[in-house]
Design a protein around this nucleic acid. Structure first.
Length: 350
DNA sequence: AAGACGTGGTT
DNA sequence: TAACCAAGTCT
């Protein structure tokens, strides 16, 4: 009969191997009963959704410098927050981040809820993030289940049912293991284990603190778990964007509608994007358009995009049919979502 | 409830 | 290089 994994063994490992991150507090501080700032926990967890730690770090530092607390963020201008988020992806997160900040600042007087039901009411906070905030910021014994935890549980218990069907089973395993002692540290420890040792490929079972009780390690099946139902192939879509530069250096941009792809972000005016061919469309302003020799290629979650980029230099007095001119001094390419920045970079090169 | 929703790094 | 993957949420 195999022993169940011991949370204490994982916590011991965490005490010596925890990675330093800007949103974490040090072990000494933790030992003296301090908790991390809920605002920073919340912000980091939203940024970390489907996003790597490495990609988040600089954004987190920028956000906390610009907006040190939830009131500052709530008071920010939408376009400043969307611009600061540009490049991180999943832009609904940024829109919900602002909505959530304003609810907490105005309705809750700046106090983050500490319970699951209250947290789940807030925009952008789902089951994972609610548990993470409750556990990490308030040290409550909630169970976090992210991709790391799913993988660790699938291996610990050698679960071969493919995701997402197996999610309830894996969640149940995870809940059974969650300790009442140091639940916040434990939550981060399981995720750190998944990120550094129990990795998707080439798991380092030899140095794993849970090697002994791990059923998949025992069976030699760890590398192939968790199983996942195969994904659908991505279709290719085609479209055209128009980069108009006025003689004074201003550029023609539009603010995309809040719903849908790249919602709330700046972008070059252009056609819709569809499979097989670029849909019929009008140019955003009358000009002598030149087509760049290369197309901008970009891959989204569910399709590949090939963008034809057309450019023109337009005189001062010409009126745009779509979008607004942004003065050169107010235009930062870093405010653009990556696909739009790619189109811009293509123009600079060509 | 299955699909929409970004991006960059790794293999 | 194409596919896979990352601390998910919303509709």
């Amino acid at each position: 009969m195999r022993d169940l994994p011991e949370p204490a063994d994982l916590l011991d490992w965490y005490d010596t191997h925890a990675r330093k991150m800007p949103w974490r507090i040090g072990p000494a501080e933790r030992a003296s009963g301090h908790r991390p700032d809920p605002y920073r926990v919340w912000l980091s967890e939203i940024m970390l959704q489907q996003t790597t730690v490495a990609a988040v770090k600089d954004y987190f530092l920028r956000f906390t410098t610009l907006w040190p607390d939830v009131h500052a963020l709530a008071a920010a201008r939408d376009e400043d927050v969307m611009g600061a988020w540009a490049g991180l992806g999943y832009y609904a997160r940024a829109r919900n981040l602002l909505k959530c900040a304003r609810v907490i600042s105005e309705d809750l007087k700046g106090a983050f809820p500490d319970t699951l039901p209250e947290l789940l009411k807030l925009p952008g906070i789902g089951p994972y993030t609610a548990a993470a905030i409750s556990a990490i910021a308030f040290d409550r014994p909630e169970t976090v289940v992210d991709g790391n935890v799913e993988r660790v549980m699938a291996r610990l218990f050698d679960e071969h049912t493919p995701l997402p069907a197996s999610k309830p089973i894996l969640t149940e395993h995870a809940a059974r293991l969650t300790p009442t002692q140091r639940p916040g540290d434990y939550a981060q420890a399981v995720m750190d284990l998944g990120a550094t040792i129990c990795t998707p490929r080439n798991p380092a079972c030899g140095i794993c603190p849970w090697r002994i009780p791990c059923k998949a390690c025992d069976m030699g099946t760890a590398a192939g778990l968790p199983k996942k139902t195969p994904k659908k192939p991505k279709p290719i879509r085609f479209g055209t964007v128009y980069i108009a530069r006025r003689v004074d250096g201003a550029v023609l941009l539009e603010r995309r509608p809040d719903k849908g792809l790249l919602g709330g972000m700046l972008g070059w005016p252009g056609s819709d994007w569809s499979e097989n061919e670029t849909p019929p469309h009008d140019t955003p302003i009358r000009a002598e358009w030149k087509t760049l020799p290369a197309e901008a290629r970009h891959t989204f979650t569910h399709f590949h995009l090939r963008l034809t980029v057309k450019t023109a230099l337009v005189p001062m007095d010409r009126t745009a049919r779509v979008g607004d001119f942004l003065e050169q001094a107010d235009f930062r390419p870093s405010d653009l979502p990556t696909v739009m920045r790619k189109a811009f970079d293509l123009m600079r090169e060509g």
